[in-house]
């Protein structure tokens, strides 16, 4: 079977494939020869398992996530639904201010949903969000974890803040809109989480 590589990331390849007659996407973690096998095997199988678990759970809590069809821990492959949408990274700088605000509110809303169930994404960037059917689909939970601490949620949002600053620097109010959406949906006191972001920024070097 020929497989078409849709995207080659730092950690994995995203391939288009057929699974039981359906067009699917396979996320295949690449073995890294720079690190010793001991570390690599553990990371590959651990991250594959955690990712599949977190995706399934986030979906149960109302976040748009591709459906998982199969998980192969040994080879580090997750077979999932193919989303025919657009990456937020590619569209965010090109849309109107009003639309940008609407999309960002939605992003914040979704993040709050998985944070409500203590799911930490671990790598929230606009490359990891796909817009399809007017819903923000989250992908790549590869660095995620379950964690109820404010700290973990704060770090999660801080990663996104840095990504917005570096990739969408002309539209840095995006992050504010995202937080607006987050505040509305987050159960519990969102101020604790949002204040944590400032604390993390100050903790960084040379702040």
């Amino acid at each position: 079977m020929t497989k078409k590589i849709l995207y080659r990331g730092a950690e994995a390849e995203i391939q288009l494939a057929k699974h039981m007659g359906h067009q699917v996407v396979q996320k295949r973690r690449i073995k890294k020869t720079y690190r010793i096998k001991n570390i690599d095997d553990k990371l590959v199988s651990y991250r594959t398992r955690e990712e599949a678990k977190l995706m399934t759970e986030a979906r149960l809590h109302g976040v748009s996530i591709p459906i998982i069809y199969d998980v192969d821990l040994e080879n580090g492959v997750i077979t999932m639904e193919y989303l025919k949408g657009k990456r937020i990274k590619d569209i965010l700088n090109k849309i109107s201010e009003k639309e940008r605000k609407r999309i960002c509110n939605k992003i914040g809303d979704s993040i709050a949903r998985f944070h409500n169930s203590n799911i930490i994404h671990g790598d929230i960037t606009t490359s990891n969000m796909i817009l399809m059917d007017d819903k923000i689909h989250f992908i790549d939970f590869g660095l995620g974890e379950k964690n109820s601490e404010i700290e973990a949620k704060g770090v999660d949002l801080h990663v996104l803040m840095e990504a917005i600053e570096s990739t969408h620097s002309k539209y840095s109010n995006c992050f504010k809109y995202i937080l607006d959406g987050y505040r509305k949906e987050y159960k519990g006191n969102s101020d604790y989480v949002i204040n944590k972001i400032d604390e993390i920024v100050k903790r960084g070097r040379y702040r």
Partner: peptide, 11 residues
């Protein structure tokens, strides 16, 4: 190899 925490958050 003795296992040690491998701590990456995003980048």
């Amino acid at each position: 190899y003795l296992e040690l925490p491998y701590s990456i958050k995003g980048m």
